[in-house]
Design a protein around this nucleic acid. Structure first.
Lengths: 160, 160, 160, 160
DNA sequence: TTTT
DNA sequence: TTTT
C-alpha cells in the first residue's frame, strides 16, 4: 500500500504561553503558536524579517514537557507533520480550514523569555543558565489522534 | 537578528493536473495539490490509509518543470517551507487562511498515472520507462515572492 | 543533559543486493550501499553527475523488508542517523573509521533494476510495474543497537 | 539522469575552536567537529548519553560566520550533505576514508561556552547574552567544491 | 483530487 | 503573539 512522507522541521520562538488540555480519553494535549523568522529581501530590495506563524499541537509526554518547560518566548525545535482540518462554520456555513503541525519531537533550546519554572514569563538569567542544554522529547503521534470524533469529544473538548 | 528554520519534506502523488500561471512580473508559478498517504491505526484498531492534502506552489524554473513533467498522479518529493496567507473574505467578511508549501526543490519519482508528455492522464509504460530516474529540480524561493501586492498583481492574477 | 539532533534523508539507488545477517541476539540486520547522485558543475564549468555512496544499516522489521523487497538498483528513501564506528586495524594497527547511516524509516520507490521477487538482479519491466507504489517502513533504531559488544557478538558476527 | 537527495540536519555543540583556512583559489573554509548527544538505553537497561561526533566543513560566507561567531562549545544547527573522501595512505598504503558534512546552512543557537567575541573559549555570561538569538547563515555548497585537485591545491592546502 |  |  502506498505510503508517503509528511515531515516538518521548525525552529522558532513560542508566541504565547501554551494551552494545555486533555481529551475525553485522558490524553494530554498542548497547543501553541510558533514564530519562525527569516530574512527576506523585499520588492524594494531591503532586507526585512518576515515571520511565519505555525499552530503546533503536542500529545502525551511531549504535552507534559510543554506544560512544564515551554512558555511565551521559549525557543524550540519541532519535528512533526502537517495536518489540515476542515469543518463547516456554524454561523456562516462556510467551509473553514486550519493547518496544524502535529509534533513528534520537541527540542528545548536555551534562550528567550520563557524556559523553566521561574513562575513568570520573563527570564532573568544568571549562572544557572550558563550551559543551556538542548533537551529533546520524542513522541510519536498517537495513531488514533486525528480521529477526535471517534473518541466522543465534543466541540468544547477539542483541544485546538 | 533572530532567524529560524521552516522546512518541509513531502513525498506523495499529485491530485490533479497542475495549474500554471504567470505573475504580472512574468514569473512562472505552478500550483497543485499533493496527497501524502500514511497508514494509521484508527480508533477501532483497524489499519487504514489516511491521506493528507497539501497545496504546493512552485516558482520560476521549478514551475516550468511542473508544467512539462508533472500531471495528475505523478509521484514527487518536495522540499519547501510552510506559508499561511490570510485575507478578509469579500462576501462574508470573515478572516480566511490558506496554508501552502512553497517549493524549493522538486524531485520527480517514476510512477503513477502521470509523468511525461503522453498528452493524457494515464501512463502506458514501455521501454522508455524502464529506468525511471529521479530528477531533482532545485529552486530557491524568490525573495520577493510573498509580496504579491508589490508586483501589481490583482486578485485574479494571484496564481494560488 | 544536552540532547541533539542527528537526522539524515537519502534518496537514491541500491548499489548491490543487500546483505542480511542476524545478531547473536537474533535481531535481523540488513546492510547495503546506497548511491545518491547529484548534478554538479565541475571546475571546467561542465555539468556532470557526482555520485556519493552511503553505508546503510537496517534493523528488525525494516531489515526484513529489505530482505524481501530491496535489491541492486531499487530506489529507496531513507530516514536515519549518522554513526561512525572506529576500531584499531589488527594488521596495520591503525585507527580506522566507518561511517554508516542507521535507518529508521525506509520508503520503497518504484523503479530501478531491483524491486520485488523476480529472482534476479535485473528488472525486465512490463505491466506488473505499471503502478509502482511507495511503501514506507518505519522502524525506530533499537535503543541497544550501537552496543554490539554487549551482545556477545564476535567480529565475524558484526553485520556491517 | 537520476538525481537523488542527500540531506543532513545536526543540532549539537562544537567540540573545539574551528580551524579556518583558505583554498589556493582564495575560498574560505572552516572545519570543526560537532557533538550530537542522544539519550540511549544501554544493554543494561540504563539510560546514558551517547555522543556522536561529526566533521563539519563550511565554505565562503558561512566559513566567515564560523570564524567570527563559532567557538568550542557553541550550539549550532547544521543543514548539509554527507560526503566521504577516500585516499591511499602514504605510509601504510591503505585505503582510508573520511566522512564529512558539507554545510549549506548554519544557524547559531544561544548557549554553550562559545559564542561571540569574548576573546576566549569560556563564556562568562552577562546581560549582553540575555536574549540569545538564533541566526541563520545560508550558503549553498559551491558547485566546484569537491574537486580540490582541479584547483591546484596541495595536500597541505586541503583544509580538512 | 492522488496512489496501492 | 515570538525573537533580535
Amino acid at each position: 500500500m502506498a505510503k508517503g512522507v509528511n515531515k516538518v522541521f521548525l525552529l522558532g520562538n513560542v508566541g504565547k504561553d501554551p494551552e494545555i488540555r486533555a481529551t475525553a480519553g485522558g490524553m494530554n494535549v498542548a497547543s501553541f503558536s510558533l514564530a519562525t523568522a527569516e530574512r527576506a529581501k523585499g520588492a524594494d530590495g531591503q532586507w526585512t524579517d518576515k515571520t511565519e506563524w505555525h499552530n503546533i499541537v503536542c500529545f502525551q509526554r511531549t504535552a507534559e514537557v510543554v506544560r512544564d518547560y515551554v512558555k511565551k518566548g521559549t525557543q524550540v525545535l519541532i519535528e512533526g507533520k502537517i495536518q489540515t482540518r476542515s469543518w463547516d462554520d456554524k454561523t456562516s456555513g462556510e467551509k473553514k480550514y486550519k493547518t496544524e503541525i502535529l509534533c513528534n519531537e520537541l527540542t528545548l533550546l536555551g534562550g528567550g523569555a520563557g524556559r523553566g519554572g521561574e513562575g513568570g514569563s520573563s527570564y532573568s538569567g544568571g549562572s544557572s543558565y550558563s550551559k543551556p542544554a538542548a533537551t529533546n522529547y520524542d513522541q510519536r503521534t498517537p495513531a488514533s489522534q486525528p480521529d477526535y470524533a471517534d473518541q466522543g469529544i465534543t466541540d468544547d473538548d477539542i483541544p485546538f
